[in-house]
Design a protein around this nucleic acid. Sequence first.
RNA 1: GGAGGGAUGGCCGAGUGGACGAAGGCGGCGGUCUUGAAAACCGCUGUGACCAAGUGUCACCGGGGGUUCGAAUCCCUCUCCCUCCGCCA
Length: 424
Amino acid sequence: MLDITRIRQDPDIVKAALAGRAEDPGVIDRILAVDAQWRGILTQLEELRAERNRVSKEIGRMKDAAQREARAAEMRAVRDRISELENQVRQVEEEREALLLTVPNTPHPSAPVGPDEEHNVVVRVWGEELPNYDFEAIPHWDLGPELGIIDFERGVKLAGSRFYVLAGAGARLQRALIAWMLDVHVREHSYTEVYLPFVVKEEILLGAGQLPKFADNLYHDVEDDLWLVPTAEVPLTNLHRDEILDAAALPLRYVAYTACFRREKMSAGRDVRGIKRGHQFDKVEMYQFALPEASYDTLEEMLEHALTICRRLAIPYRVKELCTGDLGFGAAKSYDVELWAPGCGEWLEVSSVSNCEDFQGRRANVRYRPEPGARPQFVHTLNGSGLALPRVVAAILENYQQADGSVVVPAVLRPWMGGIEVIG
RNA sequence: GGAGGGAUGGCCGAGUGGACGAAGGCGGCGGUCUUGAAAACCGCUGUGACCAAGUGUCACCGGGGGUUCGAAUCCCUCUCCCUCCGCCA
């Protein structure tokens, strides 16, 4: 959520920033109009409340019953007027809040400007020598079933399209990746591992920015009004909801494994083959609560943490800086990390690392106190996949395949694979 | 799921209709004293909002609603926590 004070003070700057996202800047004018209305009503309301408080105290001190009743009668009218104004204020406030919740974050000035993903900028490429096979690399959706480690038919039987079953060494490989990534981030990158609920309340989705705009893409349990998490970022953002953190303790670093659930309504018909885009997938997520002055250093650092994983898997990757039109709703600046998959001939997005600045901190009310006695400020939050599992599995299968159809297990994973060196 | 008991400031804990944004204690910060520290004593110590920006006003005692001139206090409701029973990985 954007700061209403900032919108009041610099509406044109905010509008210009949103224009870069191909977002309708007219919403800012509507917010300003409702805000002005809200302030007008609030001023009247508070004046009346001040009068009521003053006179009520007088009444409490009065001895004469008739005089007392006369004043009380006057105050009954004031009370009714207050009640009317309270309803109006609440209504206008809700309207303002509802509008504010739909406005995306303003991009950082360093984000490349452009309307869509065509304008993202590749900033780094690693692994110049793409694998040069003396056989034709086949895609994971053929390789997996042949090895008996990915079962699409039975996934569909159980849960419908976009679900699959991992079996044997395939399931083991995914579990090994999760355990290994968590260990690397905990031991080498100083994150604290947390295990989180996979379902959350509506207000938690609002805090992270998935609601109210993206309800279509979420699974919702109507009976208990709980939502399946689309990413661990959602509960992590709210982990310190309504808290004032100790500035000396920042940054706080968390890493969590969760399953992620997405209805993929917006991507219907896209990426239907393979395990690239399913309704359920596993992910190891990095998250940091940072001081505002440090958050852009933190962003670079988190990107490195994700790239460390890629490099140790020895799979070629590239890093893209997202342009203003392709940034996620809450992000001010993002990098995407993609692994090369020679079988399907695609770069697979395995990580997105973002600085949301104080956008989520304000929505989830996570603050810190800069100095003892100083006013609390909103923290900056950063999230980054470290990494998203199915696509890493796909990339491993396609990069490590051999002419006989078997797949070599990457050296770093063997201790987590019970020493298995080859699948097949 | 059934029965009962709770929810007050960073923490503990008073407060059953009017001078209560809230006693007291602990913790924290500052000071006096001290070579230094401790002890003792003194002072300060929640969050947010609005504007006419002031020794200003308003709101907040789990959430929401109600009664009243006036609610931490009375009523309704929801959530969460605790105890006992049932069920269960």
